[in-house]
């Protein structure tokens, strides 16, 4: 839970999100049961107003750079403004099944 809490705290303080959800999806991948390597994050924040999708994700990547440089191998991102979030009726994609290619990729 340690990494997950770090991610939540970092995002909370950086984006003051109207909605934030951090899922540990490591169990879907070829890693040990208690791993914290694969996450999916939903952030809804007015910080994203006026920014492209790429720019929003870059903002999140920058905030989570220490985690991404270390234990976190995959980070699925859903970044929305409050208005977009309402329009989407709060539906987001589930992450795809792992196909095994991350095995040599734990660095």
């Amino acid at each position: 839970m340690i990494i997950q809490q770090q991610i939540e705290q970092q995002l909370q303080s950086s984006f003051a999100p109207a909605f934030l959800e951090v899922f540990n999806e490591s169990h879907m991948h070829s890693v040990s049961a208690d791993s914290e390597t694969h996450f999916r994050v939903v952030v809804v924040s007015s910080s994203f107003d006026g920014f492209s999708r790429v720019a929003r994700h870059q903002q999140v990547y920058a905030v989570l750079a220490p985690q991404l440089a270390g234990p976190v191998h995959a980070l699925a991102l859903h970044t929305h403004t409050a208005v977009e979030w309402e329009q989407r009726e709060q539906a987001v994609h589930a992450s795809p099944k792992c196909l095994g290619g991350s095995k040599p990729d734990q660095t």
């Binding site: 790429v54 980070l75 795809p96």
Partner: peptide
Amino acid sequence: NWPTFPQLWVNGELVGGCDI
């Protein structure tokens, strides 16, 4: 300035990764 793969590039610009 994008830490993960895949990356889709169109006309020399990063469009995004899987989620985008």
